[in-house]
Amino acid sequence: MAVETAADLAGFFLFGEYAEAAVYLAPGAPIEDSTPCLVIVDRGQGRAVFDAGERQAEGPQLHIWAQFAELPAVVRRGTFRMLDEPDGIETGEIFEIAGLPRLDHEGAIWSCELIDRSV
């Protein structure tokens, strides 16, 4: 995801446009320490299939993008618990960060591969 300006970033992370409401929880932290945020989730609809010669390999199926301004620290095994709306109730969808989160070249957006831990 490439963002040219602060206005572009704000547009991407509008609730109901591209972004969804969630809370982020660091591993081992109590639920009371969760941080509300707006995230963009790819649940596999953006999945690309790569031709690998004799066989086919699929790219990561679950991915999330979050703003550094809302979440200055995002770590592996942290979870995103999805909400029906900002300050809303949990939907039951829970995503765990599978690998090492990466910041974009501007240091504005976290990119994380996920594991679905939904209940």
Rank of each mutant, 00 (worst) to 15 (best):
G59E: 14
I115S: 13
P72G: 11
R117D: 06
L9T: 00
E17N: 09
V74D: 04
G92I: 11
E96S: 13
I64L: 13
F68V: 15
C112I: 09
E54D: 12
E4R: 15
A29I: 00
L103S: 05
L83H: 11
G44P: 00
I40M: 06
L71I: 09
T79R: 15
G99V: 11
I109T: 07
E85N: 01
F68P: 01
T5E: 12
L14M: 12
D42P: 01
E90K: 14
I89T: 14
A57K: 15
G11N: 12
P86E: 10
F15N: 10
V74T: 03
C37E: 07
A52C: 05
L9E: 02
V49L: 09
H105L: 15
P27K: 09
F80R: 03
I94C: 14
A108H: 12
G16W: 04
G92Y: 06
A7K: 15
L9W: 00
Q45P: 02
G16H: 06
F50Y: 02
R55A: 14
A69F: 13
D42M: 00
H63D: 00
T5A: 10
I64V: 15
D42F: 02
Y18L: 10
A10I: 07
W110D: 11
I94M: 11
A7W: 13
R77L: 13
L114G: 06
P72S: 14
A2W: 04
D116Y: 04
G46C: 14
L100N: 10
A108C: 12
D8E: 08
V23L: 07
G88I: 00
F13K: 06
P27C: 10
E4C: 14
Q56F: 04
L83P: 07
R102S: 10
A19K: 05
R47G: 07
Q61D: 00
A98F: 13
M82S: 11
R117Y: 06
A2M: 04
A108G: 02
P60T: 11
P72C: 12
L83G: 12
L114I: 02
S111T: 15
V119H: 11
T91R: 10
R77G: 08
V49M: 01
